[in-house]
Lab assay of single mutants.
Amino acid sequence: MSGNGNAAATAEENSPKMRVIRVGTRKSQLARIQTDSVVATLKASYPGLQFEIIAMSTTGDKILDTALSKIGEKSLFTKELEHALEKNEVDLVVHSLKDLPTVLPPGFTIGAICKRENPHDAVVFHPKFVGKTLETLPEKSVVGTSSLRRAAQLQRKFPHLEFRSIRGNLNTRLRKLDEQQEFSAIILATAGLQRMGWHNRVGQILHPEECMYAVGQGALGVEVRAKDQDILDLVGVLHDPETLLRCIAERAFLRHLEGGCSVPVAVHTAMKDGQLYLTGGVWSLDGSDSIQETMQATIHVPAQHEDGPEDDPQLVGITARNIPRGPQLAAQNLGISLANLLLSKGAKNILDVARQLNDAH
């Protein structure tokens, strides 16, 4: 009898209710805020589980004197976190989706994509230029951005401005803007500013005609071990179906173009009346040469937790077992079709030249 009692006690200790789920994140304040929001949602869904947040620095956090596009290494903000995932030191990792490459290392998958916040870019102005827009900034004003995508589009749109690289986390960039006289304004992701509670610093939100956004911008991705079915089931509740389908289309477009950090590629997606609209573009580094096109596809946005595919093969690095396969494939095909259209119009040449120029500098 006593033996059975011990077995029952052991089973209770090993039951999922007692389990601590370890969540990996970057150390920056924004990353911690984003991770806290994901953990809060998981806690609400699984009140019996405990969650421990483990923060670590990544290569991208450490190399702050070089433009991201020049470092010449993929997975700048993800490699150390993936290493911890691989060694079973954490069970899942919360990322900004735009930091996750469209091809993940073997053994990993994006197990959830959370509801997207505003994906557009924002302009934050130096205190002396508050009330201005990019259009009304004085001639030769210097605007800071760490992104080739932003610089290429904005140089084309605002030729009277000069664009220079600015690195560091959000706090560091804002301090550089406010305390030094080098920059009249800087460009940042609206979602990051909003998550930090800095709505009052948003001086201008850039519309798609001015600057399309990065693939996955404004959404959070939760990376897990691809074979860890328990954790895949656990994080599945975080999937937002519309965000998922938009981001599958965007990531398929980028992957098929073979774009990345070192080339200016941008997108804009919208879901309306059962249609998914995808606009994508590529630019030369100075913005003088560009190709942009829009395509659409009829896609039914499923309700969360309709029964999805059981075999769960990944699409552009994403596993969404609780979302039907048909809409996911339709979104992926839309991204591939748009990429093929741009490639047929000469996108590869623009991107190759951009890559060579970026590598040469």
Rank of each mutant, 00 (worst) to 15 (best):
G308C: 10
P119N: 06
A31Q: 00
N349G: 11
S284W: 05
P327N: 01
I71D: 07
Q155W: 11
L104T: 06
L104Y: 08
H120G: 09
I21R: 06
D65Y: 09
L68W: 07
G24T: 03
R32E: 07
Q292E: 15
V301A: 11
K74N: 13
A226E: 15
Q229C: 15
D289W: 13
A152P: 07
G24M: 06
Q292M: 13
H300K: 14
T66A: 13
I248R: 04
M271H: 15
G346P: 00
L68P: 08
P47W: 05
F253C: 04
K62F: 07
Y213Q: 06
T41V: 09
H120P: 04
F158A: 10
V282P: 01
C247I: 00
L206T: 05
T102A: 11
W198T: 05
H268M: 15
R246N: 07
L193T: 04
P119Y: 08
E258S: 07
S344Q: 06
R195L: 10
T25V: 05
G60M: 00
L97F: 10
L30K: 01
L341F: 06
R32W: 09
L351W: 05
L154Y: 07
S165W: 05
V301R: 09
I248P: 02
R156W: 11
I33L: 11
V202T: 14
T78F: 00
L137I: 14
A122Y: 03
Q229H: 12
K132F: 14
I291W: 08
G203P: 01
D91G: 05
S284T: 14
S141E: 08
P313C: 06
S288G: 13
K115W: 06
F77W: 10
T78N: 10
L154S: 06
K348S: 15
G168V: 03
L170Q: 14
L174T: 08
P106M: 05
S141T: 09
D61E: 14
L351Q: 15
P138L: 10
W198F: 11
A252L: 03
L30W: 00
E293K: 11
L315W: 10
T109V: 14
K62W: 07
K79E: 10
R26Q: 00
I318G: 07
V39R: 08
L254P: 01
G280N: 01
D36L: 09
L206F: 12
D230T: 00
K345Q: 05
S37K: 13
H268I: 04
T269K: 06
G308K: 01
I54G: 05
F129C: 07
G274C: 04
L174G: 04
R173T: 01
I54W: 04
L193H: 03
K140A: 11
A320G: 14
A252R: 02
F125S: 04
G221V: 05
V130S: 04
K227T: 07
K62V: 12
D307K: 15
R32C: 11
V124D: 02
G259W: 03
L220M: 12
A112S: 09
F125W: 12
D307A: 10
N322S: 07
Q275K: 12
L30T: 00
A331N: 01
I166L: 11
K70L: 08
R255P: 04
T35S: 09
L351H: 12
M212T: 12
R246D: 02
K345P: 00
L64Y: 14
D312C: 14
R149A: 02
I186Y: 03
R149V: 02
A84M: 14
Q275M: 15
G280I: 01
K115C: 08
D289V: 13
E242C: 02
H120I: 06
R167S: 08
G346K: 01
F125T: 03
V353C: 02
L351R: 06
Y46P: 02
P105D: 05
R175C: 11
L257R: 15
D61Y: 07
I187S: 06
D240Q: 14
D311E: 14
Y277C: 08
K157Q: 13
A266D: 08
E182D: 11
L234K: 12
T41G: 08
F163R: 09
L148A: 01
V23K: 00
L76F: 06
Q50T: 08
R26H: 01
G274R: 04
I186D: 04
G72S: 13
G236C: 15
K140W: 14
G144H: 02
S141W: 06
T78L: 10
S262T: 06
V103P: 12
E73C: 07
Q204V: 12
V263S: 08
W198N: 12
V316A: 11
G107Q: 15
T279N: 13
S28R: 01
V103E: 10
A330D: 12
V224F: 14
T279K: 04
T133H: 07
L342Y: 13
I248L: 11
E86A: 13
A151N: 12
M56L: 14
V222G: 03
H199E: 10
E210R: 13
G197L: 04
Q34K: 00
T319G: 06
L193C: 01
F253P: 04
P159V: 14
D273A: 02
K115I: 09
Q181D: 08
I166P: 00
K74G: 09
F163W: 13
P324G: 06
I110W: 02
G24K: 00
A191H: 01
K79H: 12
E73R: 11
L85Y: 01
H239R: 02
I318W: 01
V267Y: 00
Q217I: 03
L341H: 06
L97G: 01
L100E: 13
P138Q: 14
K27T: 09
E135T: 10
L338V: 03
I110H: 04
L81Q: 02
F163D: 03
D91C: 05
V265A: 15
I53W: 05
L351I: 08
N358K: 15
L234R: 07
R355Q: 12
A226G: 11
K157C: 11
G48N: 15
I187Q: 04
R251G: 02
I33Q: 08
C247Q: 00
V123S: 08
R246W: 05
I54A: 07
G60W: 05
R167W: 07
G216V: 03
F51T: 13
K79S: 14
A31Y: 00
L188C: 11
S69E: 12
G192L: 01
I231S: 10
G60K: 02
D61N: 01
S344N: 14
I231V: 13
T66H: 08
H120A: 05
N358G: 03
